[in-house]
Amino acid sequence: MADPVFFPFATSLDFGEVASICGASLPEGVEAGRRVEGAAALETAGPADLAYMDNPKYVEALAATKAGLCLVSARFADRVPAGTVALISPTPYHAFARILARFFPTALRPESVFASQGVAPGAIVHATAVLEAGVTVDPGAVIGPGAEIGAGTVVASHAVIGPQVRIGRNCSIGAGSTIQAALLGNRVIVHPGVRIGQDGFGFAMSPKGHMKVPQIGRVIIQDDVEIGANTTIDRGASRDTVIGEGTKIDNLVQIGHNCVIGRHCVICAQSGLAGSSTLEDFAVLGGQVGLAGHLTIGAGAQIAAQSGVAGDVPRGARYGGYPAQPALSWARESAWLKAAVARRGRKAGDNQE
């Protein structure tokens, strides 16, 4: 549930305003001026709350909800109880997100611990660093020589911004994160503990030992990227590591040197991308996916959780398994293996008799 201490409620909306924001229409006879004072899950919502439902697993919760207004797709509208107004949307979750952004704007990105602009006591900003008006630097943060930070950006406590780093406007740099050899666009969210721009894992190996190869590239992060807590993005070796605009990266992800991530990709937690991997636009990696180096995941391709990918994946394909293969082949193989094990077990039992 929303805690007003952590996430203050910004404004209430009437039913008509909610419908307008969601691009939906109120049912006939519903009072447009009725107020929505909060948002909650189906199970806990009350008459003044907005809820949503778009997953068949929650049909029973929908039927029992006491929410005043509920966003649903057309297929579930007849399951909304009589005391709840159904607001039909083709994408209820997206519509709910738009309303939440109005109700709880401070939850959209990490905020300053002081909730005030300027350089706080205890922060260190080098004399040659350039901060536009409206930058917030919390206690313990360090801004290195020649760094440039755009208006509206928040640098949280104990974050370290290295020399010559460029950070755009309205970004959020989480507590304890470190950024070096990197250029960040606008509206980038970097959650706590993220490491950007450190050495890539590059060694010239030989029987006599392994020689460190200087990593002389950068990390380029385009607009509207979000990077989850404790994720690491290595700088390029001889070319740049690039994260395309709108890409969303979960917690605990490793992105190796020279990787190129396209626009609006999704990379779930604990995935690892070896050096020089390429994800084309709108590619999706499930949790704990591992990519070998120097391969390409085509645009719009989806890789199932815990898959190990050793070769290129075509555009729009769905792969899974270890080693990863087309999802249908993987499902058939898994079914055959399960049946084979069952047959073997039955045969062993017959022999014991």
Rank of each mutant, 00 (worst) to 15 (best):
3 D>R: 12
11 T>H: 14
12 S>E: 15
13 L>E: 08
14 D>K: 11
14 D>P: 07
14 D>W: 04
29 G>Q: 15
31 E>L: 09
31 E>C: 08
36 V>M: 06
43 E>I: 03
45 A>E: 12
57 K>S: 08
57 K>Y: 00
60 E>I: 02
65 T>H: 06
69 L>M: 05
70 C>Y: 05
74 A>L: 14
75 R>C: 00
83 G>Q: 15
83 G>W: 07
84 T>A: 11
85 V>E: 12
89 S>H: 14
89 S>R: 09
98 R>G: 09
99 I>N: 15
105 P>K: 13
108 L>S: 14
116 S>E: 15
117 Q>H: 10
118 G>F: 09
119 V>L: 09
120 A>P: 03
125 V>L: 03
128 T>Q: 11
134 G>N: 05
138 D>K: 07
143 I>F: 05
145 P>D: 15
146 G>N: 11
147 A>F: 04
151 A>Y: 02
153 T>D: 07
154 V>Q: 10
157 S>F: 05
159 A>E: 00
160 V>I: 07
163 P>F: 01
168 G>M: 03
169 R>K: 12
171 C>P: 11
177 S>Y: 05
180 Q>W: 01
181 A>S: 12
185 G>C: 14
187 R>N: 13
187 R>C: 09
193 G>M: 04
194 V>C: 10
198 Q>M: 01
199 D>H: 09
205 M>F: 01
206 S>C: 01
210 H>D: 10
211 M>T: 03
221 I>W: 02
225 V>K: 13
231 T>L: 03
238 S>C: 13
250 D>G: 07
255 I>P: 06
257 H>Q: 03
258 N>W: 01
263 R>A: 08
269 A>W: 02
270 Q>G: 02
271 S>K: 01
277 S>N: 12
289 V>N: 12
299 A>F: 04
299 A>Q: 14
299 A>S: 13
303 I>D: 10
303 I>N: 09
304 A>W: 04
305 A>T: 11
308 G>F: 01
313 V>T: 02
316 G>S: 06
316 G>K: 07
319 Y>H: 07
320 G>E: 09
321 G>D: 05
333 E>Y: 07
337 L>P: 01
337 L>G: 03
339 A>T: 08
343 R>D: 07
343 R>I: 00
353 E>W: 13
